[in-house]
């Protein structure tokens, strides 16, 4: 019985801690939503395609956020400046590995509106799980 109580307490305390952290996270997301209209599109338009240079490094993406317009054709020219990273944007079915120094071309159409999380899809070190960027399609 003591064991069960201990395990429940352990999980409950973790959940309580996580919930307080989540509240903070939610606030930041709300703040972000408010300002979406103020963001200027990233990169530049070249023959109808928005081209954005994207850098990945431990443990961030630059620029963050990447801002594009709805229905635009997007070309990301992505590279890693330190170790191998990856770009994963699940909603756009993108998963591309970025070995250090190589420029990878990623093309897609921004056909969904919203804020999407860019994950690093190759384990790149102790901060990997927290390496996120944002793609804003407005």
């Amino acid at each position: 019985m003591k064991t069960i109580i201990f395990l429940f307490t352990f999980i409950f305390v973790s959940a309580a801690f996580a919930a307080t952290q989540h509240q903070h996270h939610q606030t930041s997301t709300e703040e972000l939503q408010k300002d979406v209209k103020d963001y200027i599109p990233s990169g530049e338009l070249k023959e109808g395609v928005r081209e954005v240079n994207l850098e990945a490094f431990q443990y961030s993406f630059k620029p963050d956020p990447i801002v594009v317009k709805y229905k635009e054709n997007i070309r990301l020219l992505a590279k890693s400046t330190d170790v191998t990273h990856g770009i994963g944007i699940a909603e756009f079915k993108i998963n591309v590995a970025l070995p250090k120094g190589k420029v990878k071309k990623i093309e897609f159409v921004a056909d969904k509106k919203g804020t999407f999380i860019i994950h690093c899809s190759v384990y790149c070190g102790f901060g990997h799980g927290k390496m996120h960027g944002r793609l804003i399609v407005k």
Binding site: L7, F10, I11, S14, A15, F17, A18, A19, Q21, H22, H24, H25, G129, K130, H132
Partner: peptide, 16 residues
């Protein structure tokens, strides 16, 4: 238990 606790801890930056 440990894997569940890790999942709960990471709600903070991943969301529910």
């Amino acid at each position: 238990v440990f894997l569940s606790v890790l999942a709960l801890f990471n709600i903070s930056h991943m969301g529910f």
